[in-house]
Design a protein around this nucleic acid. Structure first.
Length: 342
DNA sequence: CAAACGTGGAC
DNA sequence: TGTCCAAGTTT
């Protein structure tokens, strides 16, 4: 039996019943793939349901306001996915008036669609012979082939793509790709893989050599850079709430006026300089992003903080953690929508 | 090509 | 509690 046959047989046995598997509508498949980029099924599922209900087809998504799309996306993270998805919906309606693009070559040109998503949509929706290579596939293949070098290098990456393409039997891509990824998600897991349930066990190099906990190897990330952000809260600061620009973290999100320093000591903001006594430290928090450790300090710019109560009233889990919003994100429809107080 | 992008679950 | 990491893409 070929590898692909073994994978598909196991898949039919263990597959989860997921809404985007009960359709061949390329729009819904694309929607699910964008939502699931770097996102677990359990986290993305409610968002898929919300989007497929709010926008049943690509035209309705294209006709929506971007603010409305972003509001539905609140809490999912990687917000550029939502902006790209919306822009791409508009582009598809314009350039493909009577059919959703389903070929790899058409899809790869669109915003927010890279090699993985183009292969996924073209294979799932049209059974095009494209082998998907995502985190699951990298893990399964690197273990199976016993690749002990770091997988995040171009040569190793190409080798994995070569093996993935070799495993694919023509005409089976839709099923085969799902099967391979489902194996990675449910059995060949990152930690504690269930090798005793794996149909590839007898031929797996990592299992044979006891290396499943060391493969795939990834070169470790750079140490986090420390940054100090001082936010000035208070009734007066509300009128200075601004949207963050490009080229740094939290792009497009909203925040209170701040200054960034090289260390724990704050500096007065020009807007407030000389206008009050020394700001009072309200609270400190730490926030980690990919390669940054943010030290965040909240300062009160004046004594009466009545307006802060208004913010707390619409607070979400981030307020629960830090006491104050760092950036105004999912708790604030008014700010995401760019209306209300702005 | 390295770095940036978000959040929540697992250990 | 801290680290890893999850159906990647963009710059």
């Amino acid at each position: 039996m070929k590898i692909s046959e073994v994978l598909i047989k196991k898949y039919l046995d263990i597959k989860r019943d997921l809404p985007w598997r009960n359709t061949r509508d390329p729009y819904l498949i694309w929607l699910s793939e964008v939502i699931l980029q770097q996102t677990r099924v359990n986290q993305g599922l409610p968002y898929f349901n919300a989007f497929s209900e709010a926008y049943p087809d690509v035209r309705q998504l294209a006709e929506a306001e971007e603010d409305e799309v972003l509001r539905l996306w609140q809490g999912l993270g990687y917000y550029s996915r939502a902006r790209n998805m919306h822009a791409t919906a508009k582009q598809i309606v314009e350039k493909f008036p009577d059919h959703f693009p389903v070929t790899y070559d058409e899809l790869i040109r669109l915003k927010g669609i890279g090699p993985y998503t183009a292969a996924a949509v073209s294979s799932f929706a049209a059974n095009e012979d494209r082998a998907v290579v995502d985190g699951n596939v990298i893990r399964v293949i690197s273990r199976f082939a016993g690749i002990t070098e770091p997988v995040n290098s171009t040569p190793v990456r190409r080798e994995i793509e070569r093996i993935a393409a070799a495993w694919l039997q023509p005409g089976t891509a839709a099923l085969h790709n799902q099967a391979l990824m489902e194996l990675g998600a449910l059995i060949c897991k990152p930690q504690n893989p269930l090798c005793h349930e794996c149909p590839l066990q007898s031929a797996c190099a990592a299992f044979r050599d006891g290396l499943t906990d060391r493969i795939p190897l990834k070169t470790k990330a750079a140490p986090k850079k420390e940054r100090y952000l001082h936010y000035y809260l208070g009734a007066e600061g509300i009128q200075y709430i601004r949207k963050r620009g490009a080229g740094d973290i939290w792009q497009g999100l909203y925040e209170f006026p701040l200054c960034e320093t090289g260390g724990p000591d704050p500096e007065p903001l020009p807007s407030f300089a000389g206008r009050e006594t020394a700001p009072q430290l309200l609270q400190q928090a730490k926030h980690t992003l990919s390669h940054q450790l943010l030290h965040i300090r909240f300062w009160q710019t004046e004594l009466q903080a009545g307006h802060l109560q208004d913010y707390e009233a619409v607070a979400d889990s981030e307020l629960d953690r830090y006491g104050f919003p760092i950036v105004l994100r999912k708790f604030s429809d008014v700010f995401i929508a760019g209306k209300g107080l702005l």
